[in-house]
Amino acid sequence: EAHAAIDTFTKYLDIDEDFATVLVEEGFSTLEELAYVPMKELLEIEGLDEPTVEALRERAKNALATIAQ
């Protein structure tokens, strides 16, 4: 499951495998979680700032909209 989540994140969020791995290690496994989890939870991840989190959430929401079509 972790590998599938990493693949999904790299494909749809335009991030590298290392960043995707950090997200999975922090407990995220779906685009929905990244799109809708409280921003505070993402900001608790070391190295993430508000602009990065906002961009990540926007990419996740856009990916979900694209997949739904």
Rank of each mutant, 00 (worst) to 15 (best):
L56S: 00
E33G: 08
A65W: 11
E46K: 13
K61P: 02
V22Q: 12
I67E: 04
S29A: 09
V24P: 00
A2K: 14
D7A: 15
A65G: 06
V37N: 11
T66M: 14
V22D: 02
E46G: 11
E25M: 15
L34T: 01
M39C: 06
V24Q: 03
D14I: 06
E25W: 09
L13Q: 00
K61I: 11
E50K: 11
L31S: 00
E32T: 07
A55Y: 10
A2L: 12
P38E: 12
M39G: 05
E58R: 10
E41Y: 14
K11D: 03
K11I: 06
D49V: 03
D18W: 14
A20M: 02
F28M: 03
V37L: 12
K40Q: 13
L64G: 00
A20V: 02
F19N: 02
R57A: 06
E1C: 09
K61S: 06
A20L: 02
I45T: 03
I67H: 06
R57I: 15
A63L: 05
H3K: 15
I45K: 05
L42S: 02
T66F: 13
E26K: 15
T52G: 08
L31H: 00
A60E: 02
L48Y: 05
L34E: 00
V53Q: 02
T66Y: 11
L23P: 00
L43T: 06
A35Q: 04
D18Y: 13
T21G: 08
E33C: 12
E32W: 15
E54I: 15
A5F: 07
L23V: 01
V24W: 15
E32M: 10
A68Y: 07
K61A: 08
L31F: 04
I67V: 07
L34S: 00
A35K: 02
E17R: 15
E32K: 06
V53G: 11
E44M: 14
I67M: 09
Q69L: 09
E54V: 14
A5I: 14
T8E: 06
R59P: 02
E46N: 11
F28G: 00
L43W: 05
L13Y: 00
V22L: 15
D7R: 13
P51Q: 14
E17L: 13
A5V: 11
D7K: 15
E25P: 01
I67D: 04
N62R: 13
L64E: 01
K40D: 10
V22A: 11
I6E: 02
D14S: 08
N62T: 13
A4H: 12
E46W: 12
D14H: 10
E41S: 09
A55F: 08
E25C: 13
P38G: 08
F19R: 04
K11T: 09
A35E: 03
L42D: 02
R57M: 08
L42H: 03
R59K: 14
F28W: 07
T66R: 07
E50L: 14
E44G: 13
D18K: 13
